[in-house]
């Protein structure tokens, strides 16, 4: 297989259970560089869990997750996956940005400090350079005027934009979004989606768990529907949304559209 054919993200037969509840029942997914993939479906379908498996925030029970040709959370040697230490996983996570539903900005640091934290602490960039990058990124998400505010002094939409800047500061190969607009007041959703559209247009590889069907239809290269721990249907948004083949997808879309 040539370099170009290798997908940036490859999930192979991913299984995950919480106790006796099987949340993921064998997920296979390929995402190539520059693609925007939206994961859709009802709550409890396993979308968020699957996303969290991609950067090893959840440990998978079976199968494998590959990012940039390397297994996430494991070292492959002689046909065995050896678990690696948390600090080695950290190196892998540094290349994978993640945006959370509840923003999770460091509440004891200003917007600017949230963005410089990763580069300074993890990438060991010198503070001056990190500061310049942070200023550039905060300008990009339209948050430079609030750079010295603490998270609690910002609206949800503003916090989420800072959270996106914080992820981007690590210069990630891939961005994961876990329902980035679900905790926002309706009038604040737009500002976050605008930033995400901009990212997609710039060629960022993105996997987005979302309920925003409009965003998925407009921005996504691929829409993936998950129900009860399996992928029921996937395809180009225009096709899937107008011609859902799977009965569950039809039901889901009839409710949200």
């Amino acid at each position: 297989m040539s370099e170009i054919d290798t997908p940036l993200v490859r999930a192979v037969n991913v299984h995950k259970s919480f106790g006796r509840l099987e949340v993921l029942k064998g997920i296979n997914l390929d995402v190539t560089t520059g693609q925007v993939v939206c994961l859709l479906g009802p709550s409890g379908g396993g979308k968020s869990t699957f996303l969290r498996c991609l950067n090893h925030l959840e440990k998978i029970d079976r199968g494998s997750v590959w990012v940039d040709g390397k297994p996430v959370g494991y070292r492959l040697s002689q046909n065995r996956f050896y678990e690696i230490r948390e600090r080695e996983v950290a190196l892998q996570r540094a290349q994978i940005g993640m945006v959370f539903q509840r923003f999770n900005l460091f509440s004891n640091r200003t917007a600017l400090e949230n963005v410089t934290e990763g580069p300074i602490q993890v990438l060991k960039v010198n503070p001056k350079e990190a500061h310049e990058t942070a200023v550039r990124l905060l300008e990009r998400v339209g948050m430079m005027d609030w750079a010295n505010r603490y998270p609690a002094q910002l609206s949800g939409g503003q916090q989420q934009r800072v959270a996106i800047a914080r992820s981007l500061a690590m210069n990630p190969k891939l961005m994961l979004f876990d329902e980035p607009t679900s905790a926002l007041d309706p009038e604040l959703v737009g500002e976050v989606l605008t930033v995400m559209r901009g990212l997609a247009a710039d060629g960022m590889t993105m996997i987005v768990v979302t309920h925003e069907v409009g965003f998925a239809r407009e921005v996504a290269d691929k829409a993936v529907f998950m129900f009860d721990g399996i992928i029921a249907e996937e395809g180009i948004p225009v096709d899937v949304f107008s011609n859902p083949r799977h009965e569950r997808t039809q039901q889901f879309l009839s409710k949200v559209l």
Binding site: L57, A90, R93, M98, F106, Q121, S167, M170
Partner: peptide, 18 residues
């Protein structure tokens, strides 16, 4: 401390000690 803070730290590549 909210667990989300720890997850956010992990997601930007911080080691547990950091």
């Amino acid at each position: 401390v909210d667990h989300g803070q720890v997850e956010a730290a992990a997601s930007i590549g911080m080691r547990p000690s950091q």
